[in-house]
Design a protein around this nucleic acid. Structure first.
Lengths: 237, 237
DNA sequence: GTCTATATTTAGATAGAC
DNA sequence: GTCTATCTAAATATAGAC
């Protein structure tokens, strides 16, 4: 609402969002949905985890589907306001945004929002992973409502920092970048298995140091390919 | 068993693998698991889809979990034999394998096996997507049994065609490549939404033309970063 | 708002005839 | 091998007291 940016590095009151029983239910739902998926999660376990009666969940959130949406809405709103603020700042007059800044802005808010709230531990990120890779119409409807608007902004941002990138290629680049990011959020433990323990997908900072160059390299490769085909340099129009 | 390679571009008898009722159950299970996930799928619907009595599923496959594993085992065995054959051929004496060949060998067998069997329509690919991104111990156990061995071969292959790539970076590169590939297999319809219909994630050939350069660009970027740090050129040892 | 029941549905799995 | 019928457990959601 205000003219200023959102408090990006705010240290203001890291109070748990889940205040009161209603919030405790949301916190518990996030954990259980993350661990078991929508179908696998049960209202009973969520109630037990939240320390409330099962009936109370239905009083506050009506049914399982709207409870799930409430979980998604709560975090994604914060995360995407943060992401939008980073984009605004990056392209403010006089700034010179680079590709790697855009890519980093794609992931940091999701990571930090998880850490900041402390009630999370990567749970919401795992919900995002299953949503992003699901062809289920319900999941895609949520993705469309909560993530497509910011996705379009990122696609535009990619083209601004990488003028040679066509619009279709920018869409693909965005999708691929998200796909790589899912590897980090999923926390499957597979990198450790395949590396004898050397690679740890629990260490997000170490992963970001690999992911950002990988994605930037991938995107510039797409740009080069387009330029070779069209013979354009990107700037001309 | 023989000395020759597996018949890679074989046109021999595209008979459905699902012969008999036992096979029909496997085919139906693949479709239903793909559409609803493990938890969401029901034995009743699988039976109905296969046109058999529900009890027969338990006679052949004991329970839901082993039925699921049978579905995974059937396809992954074929796919990974095909992938192994491509790697063997690629690194045969006198051949000069390139990075893009290795990356393409990562995906083509999964795509073609789906098309070839015709009874699929991308269903198994969607099962793979949810398995690959799941932190559930059961899913990871399947990934370990059916996919880790070939994954290690691909990681080695990446280092052979990209000598400057360290082992840890090769593991990350493999994980990121799989992550990008999932974008193609998931068939969420999101690329079409974000591009006003211009990008179609149902067109795998068009997607491969974007995915392969993206991944190769990403991997060479990782290599360059390592070389900058160590000052090595890759060949020296 | 919150709880304790409980109604209703649906799931995976089994028994036993053919 | 295959079917029909059924058992048993578990899940979502509701009713109604406090």
């Amino acid at each position: 609402m205000s003219a200023g940016l959102a408090p990006i590095n705010s240290t203001s009151a890291p109070r748990p969002l889940g205040a009161g029983r209603s919030g405790a239910i949301l916190d518990a739902a996030e954990r259980v949905f993350a661990q078991a998926g929508f179908k696998g999660a049960t209202m009973r376990e969520i109630a037990r985890d939240a320390g409330v009666a099962q009936g109370l969940i239905h009083y506050h959130y009506v049914n399982k589907a709207t409870l799930f949406e409430a979980v998604v809405a709560r975090r994604s709103t914060r995360i995407n306001e943060y992401r939008a603020a980073l984009l605004d700042r990056m392209f403010a007059p006089g700034r010179d945004a680079r590709l790697c800044d855009v890519v980093e802005a794609l992931f940091r808010p999701t990571i930090e929002t998880g850490i900041e709230l402390a009630s999370d531990g990567g749970a919401f990120a795992r919900i995002l992973v299953s949503m992003a890779n699901s062809a289920d119409p319900t999941d895609q409807a949520l993705a469309e409502r909560y993530y497509d608007p910011i996705a379009r902004r990122f696609i535009d941002a990619l083209r601004r920092v990488e003028p040679g990138l066509g619009h279709e290629d920018a869409v693909w680049a965005y999708m691929f970048a998200i796909g790589v990011g899912m590897t980090m959020m999923a926390k499957t433990g597979r990198p450790a298995r395949l590396s004898g323990g050397a690679c740890d997908d629990g260490d997000v900072d170490a992963m970001l140091e690999k992911i950002v160059p990988f994605i930037c390299g991938g995107i510039t490769a797409l740009t080069r390919k387009t330029e070779e085909k069209t013979g354009q340099t990107g700037r001309m129009k």
